[in-house]
Design a protein around this nucleic acid. Structure first.
Lengths: 194, 194
DNA sequence: ACCCAACCATACTTGTGCGTATGGTTGATG
DNA sequence: CATCAACCATACGCACAAGTATGGTTGGGT
């Protein structure tokens, strides 16, 4: 979680997807509340007149953008991790991947912070269930009893969420790259059975 | 984290503290954004005219209320846990206490969710530092090397934050009382050295 | 060349919540 | 019992962001 990413605002006419992408960028950097149609219009070089041609309402944009992200992200995670046969190795890889991604986790963190919003609450719930199930299955395959697997998965997932919460946006004493790597290793050796 | 708590709205004239307490109640249940002066006035049975006698602005109320909570909460935690001599026992007690408190953690969770707010950001930062230091010290006393102690403390604290985030307000598959106890035990045996 | 659908600008209306202005009520105190 | 400070009500003003109404522009197909 070190590099920066930036979208290039499209020149010329816009499509609904352009608005969704712009919304996701703002979401990643400033949270759900910062997604305002006039502000978005400014960054896209147009006015709200354009927006309300593509979407009936701000909520509609939010929904489309978030759904688009959820789809992309979920496919990506599953494709990268599911094929790994050994469950311990799969868990380690999962932790490592998660520790290196940037934009997608920024968005998840932003959604997490706005999880009282009626539109994002079900998204968070779906994602939590899916990822928790992914972890739980891996732990079971790794030899954990059903209950312990569920608990360990929950622990891992809450640690992940809490980390996003406390680091990305503010909060904790920051770590440099080297210490961050050491931390990730510590987490893996603590939470993944040898 | 199972019982409910409720403040009784005071009859008769109000003081600044009454407003602060009401604000904290709303904060615990509905988050920072829900602290609105007209809404608060309604629940207190008065109008905004009253509010602006006690406080110059909404932000001032927020600051006072949060500061009051931070003070109370910090004193309480430290008083209850610091006297325990054995570091492992202290850690276990800490986890258990944290798992049973309600209102104070609701408030912390609410603040966590609003940690991009300029007024709560420094509060979260202070609290994170203090609690992280508390944990780190305990792990060091328990025999961890400096680096490992810091990492384990961070893991424990992020798990705590993430748990609050994902449970209290929404998100994860909910647990009944018995399973919750089992989960806490799992966390303790996983994160506290035997 | 023209025309229509896609796209955008301008100028509104509306709702919400903070803050202000001003005057009324109450209770402790001399 | 009179008075003054503490407390509260009512009625505003104002800013900000969403949404609406309406008309203008642009480009690709015929």
């Amino acid at each position: 979680m070190s590099e920066e990413e930036q979208r290039t605002e499209p020149r010329g006419r816009l499509s609904a997807e352009d608005w969704e992408q712009a919304a996701l960028d703002v979401l990643a950097q400033s949270g759900v509340a910062a997604i305002a149609v006039e502000a978005l219009a400014r960054t896209l070089g147009v006015t709200k007149g354009s927006f309300y041609w593509h979407f009936p309402t701000r909520e509609a944009l939010l929904k489309s953008a978030i759904d688009r992200w959820e789809q992309r992200d979920e496919d990506q995670v599953l494709a990268q991790v599911e094929p790994i046969a050994d469950p311990r190795e799969r868990l380690r890889e999962l932790f490592h991947r998660v520790s290196r991604e940037v934009q997608s986790h920024r968005i998840y963190a932003a959604l997490l912070q706005a999880s009282d919003h009626p539109l994002v609450q079900p998204v968070i719930e779906r994602i939590s269930r899916r990822r928790l199930a992914l972890l739980t299955d891996a732990y079971r395959e790794a030899g954990f009893a059903a209950r312990d697997a569920a608990h360990r998965a929950r622990l891992a997932y809450t640690a992940y969420s809490g980390f996003l919460q406390l680091n990305q946006r503010h909060g904790m004493p920051r770590m440099d790259h080297e210490e961050y790597e050491a931390y990730v290793d510590h987490v893996i050796t603590t939470l993944v059975p040898a």
